[in-house]
Simulated assay, not measured.
Amino acid sequence: MYWLAMLTMLIDHVGLVFFPTDPAWRIAGRLAFPIYAYALYMGYTRTRNMRSYMLAFDVHRPNVIWTLLASLLALAAASRMKHWVAVSGLYVLTALFMELSQMDYGAYGLLLVLIYRYTRSYMMIAVHFVLNVVYDMVHHANIQHFSLLSSILIVCFATGESGFYRRVPRWLWRSFYPVHLAVIALIRIWP
């Protein structure tokens, strides 16, 4: 599944840079973020060393790395809180911060991570569908509905039993985002 996330992110970014008027590239890219959000949650549940888990780099606008980092920090902080009111308040403040700072996906990104945190099986798909409907109503982004396919794949294949869920080498998983963006940038500016 992580291979699919990397491939669809690459397709999305190639389309954004080289074929901006063709929506098919962006549709394929809608599969990537939910898988990354799920991977973030799964990584969070399986690590004991938060310092070694966090990685972000400076950009001019808060990109998806910042969205995932803010979501991870919210999960970590919430796990230290005892009362559901405090946890809810933390999530609301984090969502507002993400929206006001104009992070990629904004509150949608955090809510999707929370869907993976608090729901299972077909409920995950249903709540993700509702999130997409609300997001579409607010942002007029019907392309986001294609992201639901990722949650369906996660529900069907997240057991690790399938060959579809093969592990990506850690070095490749961590370096893919900055490396593929650098390659796209070099291709774009090459004379």
Rank of each mutant, 00 (worst) to 15 (best):
T67L: 03
L93W: 01
S79G: 12
L73M: 08
V64K: 07
G43C: 08
V85P: 07
H60W: 05
M98T: 07
A39G: 14
W84F: 13
R26K: 13
H83L: 05
A78I: 09
L96V: 13
R26Q: 15
N49L: 00
A37S: 05
S71N: 07
D22N: 15
S52P: 00
S79T: 05
T94V: 11
L31Q: 07
L40G: 01
R80A: 10
R26T: 14
T21W: 11
A78K: 08
I27T: 08
I65F: 07
T94E: 01
S71W: 02
A24W: 15
R80D: 05
V92Y: 06
M81C: 10
A39P: 00
G43Q: 12
A77D: 03
M98Y: 09
F57K: 04
V87Y: 00
R26I: 06
L96W: 08
K82R: 13
L72V: 10
W84E: 15
Y44R: 00
S88T: 14
T21C: 04
P34F: 08
Y38N: 12
Y38L: 03
M81I: 12
S71Y: 02
V87G: 03
A76G: 04
L40S: 02
A95Y: 10
A95R: 09
T47F: 00
S52L: 10
H83K: 14
T94P: 03
A86I: 07
M98K: 13
L90M: 06
A56D: 03
M54N: 09
I65K: 13
A95N: 05
P34T: 08
Y91Q: 11
N49A: 06
W66C: 02
A28I: 07
L75V: 08
M98D: 02
P62A: 05
Y91V: 14
V92W: 01
R61Y: 05
V59N: 05
I27W: 15
R80K: 11
A95L: 10
R51P: 00
L90P: 15
L55K: 07
R26S: 14
K82D: 09
D58V: 12
H60V: 09
N63V: 10
N63M: 11
S52F: 03
A86G: 13
M81H: 11
A24M: 12
P23V: 13
M50V: 06
T45F: 03
R80L: 09
Y44P: 02
V59H: 06
A37Q: 02
W66I: 01
K82M: 10
M50F: 11
A37F: 03
V85L: 13
G43L: 09
G89L: 15
Y41G: 02
T21F: 11
R46G: 14
W25Q: 11
V85C: 07
F33Q: 04
M81K: 07
A37T: 03
K82A: 12
H83Y: 10
Y44C: 00
Y41N: 09
A28W: 14
H83M: 06
R80Y: 05
G29N: 02
V87S: 09
N49F: 02
V59W: 06
T94C: 15
R46D: 12
A37G: 08
L72M: 08
S88A: 14
A28P: 04
A70E: 01
V64P: 02
E99M: 00
G89H: 13
A28M: 15
Y44V: 04
R46N: 15
L72S: 10
I35F: 11
G29L: 09
A32C: 11
A78C: 13
F97N: 01
R80G: 11
T67E: 01
N63I: 06
T47A: 06
